[in-house]
Structure formats: structure tokens, C-alpha cells
Design a protein around this nucleic acid. Structure first.
Length: 201
DNA sequence: AGCACGATTAACT
DNA sequence: GTTAATCGTGCTC
């Protein structure tokens, strides 16, 4: 049994591209009613600064984006399309808006609980999308601004070290209307699973 | 005050 | 491949 290591503020207080890359293989944990729901992070995206026209901070400091300007290691959880919650991790120095969108995890603990949130869906589609994983782990707006470094309710633990050859970078998705270079810049990171058939992405 | 649209998903044809 | 669902946010008037 390997001791779980809670990712600390120093992990998040680094350039967002490094954090997005290093979160691959880490374990996202939702601690609920004494039970752990968790999954290995297999896909992330980086959003960086007011100049990044795909980043919410393009609008500057607003009530919505305030969390991104705050200290690293906090959760930025926002509501989208009138029905979906999406989870981000704030990164970098306080005052600079940047965050990592957690796009997909591979479920590892609390499968029975996760399934209850994803009824009718096959297991390989329980948490293979940013809104799906929030639904599966019961993550919503109450976690906006939550400190991920306290090990309380929602946090991330270090996982296995992922060799570079297993990391694939590509353009971020869902931002087709964003001008170049932001639309195509390869700030999406994926961890190729050895069991691709069991986990569509 | 009104409006267009979005870091998506699921169900369709 | 196409589209409805559904509402907070930021921008325009």
C-alpha cells in the first residue's frame, strides 16, 4: 500500500502548462460521507491569462473570474450551457489568471456511487468528459473557490509518474470560434490508457 | 433591460 | 452529422 500524497500549493504554484501536464496520472478524490470517490486524471487543458482568448479571464477580473486571479490550488468550478458544471484547478502565482480544466478521469474508487450519478451509461463513459466527471463525483458550484490542498471534500493526490512518451498534446476542444493562435495551440494533454477500448475519450 | 452564446452532453436522423 | 436542453455571464443599447 503506497501512502497517498496530497498535492500541495507548491505543486499548483507553477506555470499552468507544467501543472496541466503533471496532473496526468494524479488522482482526483471526492471524499463524501466517509467514502472515497476517485479517478486517475487522464486528460487536461490549460487556460492561461487575459491574452488567451479561450480563457474566461479574457474578460478581465470579474465576479466570475475572481477565483482564477486568487491563490493557486483552489478549485474554479463554473456552470456552462445552462446545465453542466466543469472543474478547474487554479495555478501559477496569485494575481495571474490561469487554470487547468480537468477533462477526463478513469474511475478507481467508489464505482458504485459514481454509477448512481451516471445511471444508464456504460462504465467507460461515466467520467470521460469534463461535465460527466463532475456529475459522477458530485462536484458542483459549492466547490468554487474550494482549497484543494486541505484534503477536505475535494482534493488531488499524487499518482504514478507518467513518462513523456505517454503524453499526447493537441488543440483544446470546444473553442472552434476562438481566433488563432489560441484555437489550435496544443494545450490539451492526454494520457493514453493501456486499455483504450475500456475508456473512450 | 435585453440579448447572444458558451471550456457539453445525450439523443436523434 | 445534427440538434435540443437550459441559464449565468458579459456585452450592447
Amino acid at each position: 500500500m503506497i501512502a497517498s500524497v496530497l498535492l500541495s500549493v507548491s505543486f499548483y504554484r507553477r506555470p499552468v502548462l507544467e501543472v496541466a501536464r503533471d496532473l496526468l496520472g494524479a488522482r482526483l478524490v471526492r471524499y463524501l460521507d466517509g467514502q472515497r470517490l476517485s479517478g486517475t486524471i487522464v486528460e487536461t487543458e490549460a487556460y492561461r491569462g487575459e491574452e488567451d482568448l479561450a480563457c474566461h479571464a479574457r474578460a478581465g477580473y470579474t465576479k466570475r473570474t475572481a477565483v482564477m486571479y486568487g491563490p493557486p490550488g483552489r478549485a474554479y468550478v463554473y456552470f456552462n450551457y445552462g446545465m453542466h458544471w466543469l472543474l478547474n484547478c487554479v495555478t501559477g502565482e496569485e494575481g495571474f489568471p490561469a487554470a487547468v480544466l480537468v477533462r477526463a478521469i478513469r474511475p478507481t474508487e467508489g464505482l458504485d456511487q459514481i454509477e448512481k450519478q451516471r445511471t444508464g451509461q456504460p462504465q467507460n463513459q461515466w467520467t470521460n468528459g469534463p461535465a460527466k466527471l463532475c456529475k459522477g463525483l458530485m462536484i458542483d458550484g459549492v466547490f468554487n473557490g474550494h482549497d484543494l490542498c486541505e484534503g477536505d471534500g475535494l482534493y488531488i493526490e499524487a499518482g504514478h509518474t507518467v513518462p513523456p512518451e505517454r503524453v499526447f498534446a493537441g488543440p483544446r476542444v470546444g473553442i472552434e470560434k476562438v481566433p488563432e493562435p489560441w484555437r489550435s495551440i496544443p494545450w490539451r494533454f492526454r494520457l493514453e490508457t493501456t486499455d483504450a477500448a475500456q475508456f473512450d475519450s
